Amino acid sequence: MVTTTLLVLAAQFIVYGVAGAYLQARFAAPQSVISLVLLAFGVVGIIGNAAAARIYGRLGGARTIAVPLAGLAIGFVALTAAPPSIPVAVAVFAFWAFFNGLFMAPQQARLVELLPEQRGMLLAANASALYLGMSLGSLLGSRLLPSLGAGPLPALALLPLALATAAHVASTRTPALVRN
């Protein structure tokens, strides 16, 4: 289950870890616009986080996690296909931010729900996976951006996101003691 966290964060940070350079290279965004896009990302992420409890209550843990996984995939496809327009960049980053914010709280709640007697260890492992994923994605993005350019980064982020989805699906089908 914490494998899902690691891979989701790795996928996101392939782009987000180099967001300023990405926005500048892909959308010709000046520094002032980059700051506003990142501010909007944070604000919309808070809205996604606030919506998470309602969605979790309505759909339950496993299905709630599937929603941000699908939303992130759509966001990365949109970033890959988007025309080089600043308003489009803002809109797609905002879309992405919502689903980014929607992921973590339900993921943590699901961990506690799956193994409540191990919640402390699971949440600690999840936090470690989060930071490892952020580091791994940032490393990949910073290494790939100079050699490949900004355009393919979101498409490349789809690979760890697909692996995260597979890890999530596997965690819904295996007994609690062997979940990843």
Rank of each mutant, 00 (worst) to 15 (best):
I55C: 01
I55Q: 03
I55R: 03
Y56V: 03
R58Y: 09
R58S: 01
L59S: 02
L59P: 03
G61N: 06
G61V: 02
A62I: 09
R63F: 10
R63W: 12
T64L: 00
T64I: 01
T64Y: 00
I65D: 08
L72C: 11
A73K: 02
F76R: 11
F76C: 10
L79E: 05
T80Y: 12
A81P: 10
P83M: 08
P83H: 08
S85T: 10
S85A: 09
I86A: 01
I86N: 02
V88A: 14
A89M: 10
A91H: 15
V92G: 01
F93N: 00
F93Q: 02
F95C: 02
F95I: 01
W96H: 14
W96V: 13
W96C: 05
A97E: 01
A97L: 02
A97T: 00
F98I: 08
N100Q: 03
N100F: 12
N100L: 04
G101L: 09
L102H: 04
A105N: 14
A105Y: 05
Q107V: 00
Q108R: 14
R110P: 04
V112E: 09
E113R: 08
L114T: 12
P116K: 06
P116Y: 10
G120I: 14
G120M: 13
L122T: 07
L123S: 08
L123T: 12
A124C: 04
A125W: 07
A125C: 03
N126R: 05
